[in-house]
């Protein structure tokens, strides 16, 4: 464990908690893409299947459980508890355009052709694109509440910190996970445009982020 990975995991946890509390307290999921949240729940489900077969550390197990519980709870809030406020009309990204290529690629590019390894690879590729429905929804509605932008900031920051973690691990222990690194770079690049808007609009300007 290094400071970059710990900061990344904390940033990821903060993002997930920000979103959950925003929906829970405001009793509304307006402006939130339910599709992205379903994809994130799918990412955790397909990645953490080794939860009960491999014990790495208490931290690892606890964080996996927290991510799984919070992501499913968020999906529950959106599609069940506060489904009246779910903006399905603007949450119109065709997720099959993500799932098909990601599934195909996971079968082509993986470390081993075993169910667990293919599902892990699927989760890595899917995580890189899972935020697309949410970013698409923001461009469609033309704005995002400030809390939603803070959620996206910490979510984007988490994988950027993981990139630093991989640089650190490469230089200190020769660790290099090509699939995770390439996918992590792609994932972080998708946030660049948002990061620019976040700094110029939200941090400096008004609380809301309204797109041009």
């Amino acid at each position: 464990m290094n400071i970059f990975r710990l900061a990344g995991d904390v940033s990821h946890l903060v993002a997930i908690i920000i979103l959950f509390l925003k929906i829970w307290k405001s009793k509304s999921c307006a402006g939130i893409s339910g599709k992205s949240q379903v994809l994130f729940a799918l990412v955790f489900t397909s990645r953490y299947l080794d939860l009960f077969t491999v014990f790495i550390s208490a931290y690892n197990t606890i964080m996996k459980l927290v991510f799984l519980v919070l992501s499913y709870a968020t999906v529950y809030l959106i599609y069940m508890r506060f489904r009246g406020s779910y903006d399905s009309e603007n949450d119109s990204f065709r997720v099959e355009f993500l799932l098909v290529p990601v599934t195909g690629l996971a079968f082509l590019e993986n470390y081993a052709f075993t169910p667990l390894e293919i599902l892990w690879t699927f989760s890595i590729f899917l995580e890189a694109v899972a935020i697309m429905p949410q970013l698409f929804m923001i461009t469609k509605t033309g704005e995002a509440e400030s809390i939603t932008t803070h959620y996206l900031f910490f979510l984007g920051l988490y994988r950027a910190l993981y990139l630093a973690n991989w640089v650190w691990r490469y230089h200190t222990e020769g660790f290099f996970d090509q699939i995770a690194v390439v996918s992590g770079v792609v994932q972080t690049i998708f946030y660049c445009d948002f990061f620019y808007l976040y700094v110029t609009r939200v941090l400096r300007g008004s609380g809301k982020m309204s797109l041009p």
């Binding site: 996996k64 470390y111 995770a180």
Partner: peptide, 10 residues
């Protein structure tokens, strides 16, 4: 098939 790395990351 590369050596199976420990999946110690989240």
């Amino acid at each position: 098939e590369e050596d199976m790395k420990p999946k110690d990351e989240l």
